[in-house]
Amino acid sequence: MSVTIGAIQGTLTMAAPLLLASLGETVLQRSGVVNVGLEGMILTGALAAVLGSQFTHSAIAGVGSAAIAGILVAVVFIVFAIRLAANQVVVGVVINLMALGITGTVSRAVFGNQHTFVTVTGLPHLIANQSILSILAIVAVPLVSYWIYHTRAGLELRAVGEQPSAAAASGADVLRIRSLAAMACGAMAGIAGACITVGDVPTFQENMSGGRGFIALAIVTSGRWNPYGCLAAALIFGAAEELEIQGQALGLHLPHDILLALPYVVTLVILAAGARSGKSPASLGLPYRKP
């Protein structure tokens, strides 16, 4: 029984950063922009949370600095991919590289070579051994969903992602909406980074985001650009990772690599089956230039 509870708690801990990042990316992709740089935003957020927490001795301030750092990375994305209309995949890839380089260099400069042993103030764990960020992630699902589907701003966001020129003709400022969506995505991804440091293991290691940004991209797509879909997909990915850890602890000889590969295979199959069902924002990945 306690194993089951532990597994559920572990799943939530694994799923929370994935969920936060994928919600941010969902908002951005709904506006028609693919941000492959999610991984870099999470990594930057992770370091910013540790630094903020260390210098202010407050984990909440750490979360705040993670959000700000995520927004700063998003600004680079906005300038090149949205304002200058460069290829979104190129800018995203570059952001990942840049984040890897900058966080590695900065953490080495601040903590020296012993940076793995530095621990900072972590967030208090509230109920069920979950940090406040896990709960924030779950609460964000209905909020984001309501915002996308039931508010005027959410309608405009979706219009911009489907037919930017039509949205522009009816008075929407396409570039402004996309930029704001990118900033929201940056903030969410930054907080996702805080989730894996001050919310879980309060220390920083080079490249500690470990591919979570790419998993979050998979979650957005397999969740069909819907916050509740993201929740379901994030829990599946989280459970797969948790099952691997629990399996090792219990001495089960699961072929854990197969287990870990399964969510990706499932995502591919979902994509192959439903890519033309019209759920994907029609102008996804296409840069928009003012006429």
């Binding site: 998979a218 870990l260 990706y264 591919l268 994509l271 994907s280």
Partner: peptide, 27 residues
């Protein structure tokens, strides 16, 4: 094939395939 026949964005599918490759190699 997924892109041409099923309209799956290659950016996403290649990311999935990267991870599947990592785990197939590990296994």
């Amino acid at each position: 094939w997924l892109k041409v026949k099923r309209g799956v964005q290659e950016v996403i599918s290649t990311i999935m395939l990267n991870y599947i490759a990592i785990h197939v190699v590990g296994w």
